[in-house]
Amino acid sequence: MQKYCPFLSAMLFSITLLPHAALAKTRSVEEERLIGSCIRKASLGKPWLEKTLWGLRDQEAGWLGAEIRNSNGSHDLGPLQINSWWVPRIAGEVQRSEKQVRNWLRFDACFNAEAARWVFLSALRSSGDYWTAVGIYHSPTLWRQRRYQKAVARHLQERFGDNVFR
């Protein structure tokens, strides 16, 4: 995980003061470029991992500052919608407070993309199966995993074509 960028702090402080409707308007070409750059960095030069992160991003469709409440009381945070359930584990990994990690997940596109990589690769290590890991990224519930896997596969095909991993 990368360390927090102090420059981003000032910019993000001003974003947090905007009302929700104004925040939605901040999803600009510049923000998408930033998120794309962070996905490329988080993929560590591995094309299959970059494509995977793009598939997750396209399905999740979050934005900088996003904090979406789920029916179970958790929240999905930032561009790749990292579930707040992961905050304590990530905080332990980077040895930072949960409050700080939650803020980074919401407002630091690169931290969010790196966390998405970590969540996905953790699921891949534990399951040993690519599509199972894609499903686990979304939910521990099997039927939700299957629905999510199909949605991500569709996004991958739309973005990269039918031969996405060839």
Rank of each mutant, 00 (worst) to 15 (best):
L8K: 13
E32K: 10
V152C: 07
S127A: 13
P19W: 05
K46V: 15
M11Y: 15
K41V: 10
G161L: 11
R146F: 06
R40Q: 13
F111G: 06
K150N: 12
N103D: 10
Q2Y: 06
L8M: 10
S139C: 06
A22L: 15
V134Q: 00
Q145C: 11
W131E: 09
C38N: 02
L156H: 02
P6F: 07
L64R: 14
A42D: 07
S127L: 05
S14T: 14
P79C: 05
E32I: 00
S127H: 03
L49K: 09
W118H: 06
S9H: 09
R57E: 06
D76W: 02
D162L: 12
W143F: 13
G62S: 02
R147M: 11
V134I: 15
W104M: 15
T132Q: 09
R27S: 11
S84N: 01
F160T: 00
R117H: 11
F111Q: 00
L23Y: 08
A115W: 01
D162Q: 14
W104Y: 11
L80G: 02
S9F: 10
L156K: 03
S122C: 01
F111M: 02
A66D: 08
I15G: 01
S9K: 12
F165W: 12
E30S: 07
A123H: 05
K46D: 15
S37H: 03
E98F: 01
G135A: 05
G161D: 09
L124A: 12
I90S: 05
L77T: 03
P79L: 04
L53V: 01
S127Q: 02
L64N: 02
Q2V: 15
D58G: 07
R146C: 09
R159N: 05
P47L: 07
W118G: 05
K99L: 10
V119G: 04
H155L: 07
A133L: 10
W48E: 15
K99I: 08
Y130S: 04
E31K: 00
R102D: 04
L49A: 14
A10H: 12
E158R: 14
N103M: 10
S97L: 04
D58S: 10
M1V: 15
G65K: 02
W63Q: 03
P88W: 04
S139G: 11
F107R: 00
M1Q: 11
R106E: 04
E67S: 14
I39G: 10
V94F: 11
E98S: 10
I15M: 08
F120I: 01
A153Y: 07
I90K: 01
R89S: 11
E67C: 11
R146K: 14
L44D: 07
P88V: 07
K150M: 08
A42E: 06
R40V: 08
L12S: 15
D76L: 11
T141F: 08
G161Y: 09
K41M: 09
Q149A: 13
D129R: 12
E30V: 05
Q95M: 14
R102P: 00
F160Y: 13
L17N: 14
D76E: 07
Y4H: 07
R166T: 10
P140T: 13
A42Q: 07
S74W: 00
